[in-house]
Design a protein around this nucleic acid. Structure first.
Lengths: 124, 124
DNA sequence: TGGCTAATTATCCGTTAGGTTAACAACGTG
DNA sequence: CACGTTGTTAACCTAACGGATAATTAGCCA
């Protein structure tokens, strides 16, 4: 699991870390401020922040005793790009639902060609 | 890690599983067909498929001796929805880059109001 | 300097992930 | 029925995850 995309998804696969990102999306915060809403110990939060930092999802900057954390969305963008490859896939699934609903109200007209469902590129 | 979103992201945090999804995005396949491109053992692939199935990302149907696997993109859609909450965030980051570049070529006109960077809803 | 505050690092612990090989189950076909 | 094919399940291993507490580092301030 050394690739960036895996690291990003792994970082997002934890509700605490997603909540931290959500918090940071409305502005920078210190470690203590980020820890406050949770019942976890401070070291636990610190670990989560380390995971987020290694995934490139946040950056930490020192300010006296405090560390200011800032969200950094580039990996989120990459993750979204990967997921976008499948968007047409579920949009077509939705189309198929529409087609199905249509067959309820009117009989099938003729055999339409099956559209391709593949994303443009081969994702990894 | 009991929530659906965490399960989805965890399932995506593995390059083998993402490759399997990519393969399935261009059409259904049997377990053996899915295993073929990898150097992993068949049980290893079977485990990956179980993970994907529990995440709701694929469905398996029996066809004689074979199991046909089909991609099921609803969880991908949900994951995308979550990530979309941050889209404006990186679009604004891009805007800021544009602003910065603008300041290089022309002096600042006036103090524009700072736009909010927060997603519409509170993600979890 | 001493002490308070903020956060990280060091252990330690139980659970889960991801892989292996070997055994098993289920279906098709001679 | 016997046998090959297709997958899964069982048992096992190592490494990593997510948490705790205790100790440590680093900065502020009186």
């Amino acid at each position: 699991m050394t690739d960036a995309l895996s690291t990003t998804f792994a970082a997002l696969a934890d509700p605490t870390r997603r909540a931290i990102l959500a918090r940071l999306s409305s502005g920078d915060a210190t470690v203590g401020e980020l820890a406050e809403p949770f019942e976890l110990s401070l070291p636990a939060i610190s670990k989560h922040l380390t995971v987020l930092e290694k995934a490139g999802l946040i950056t930490k900057s020192r300010d006296g005793q405090r560390r200011h954390c800032r969200i950094s969305v580039a990996p989120l963008k990459d993750a979204t790009s990967w997921l976008e490859l499948y968007r047409q896939h579920w949009e077509q699934q939705f189309d198929n639902l529409g087609d199905y609903l249509a067959t309820i109200h009117e009989p099938p007209a003729d055999g339409r060609g099956t559209r391709s469902t593949a994303p443009k590129e081969n994702p990894s």
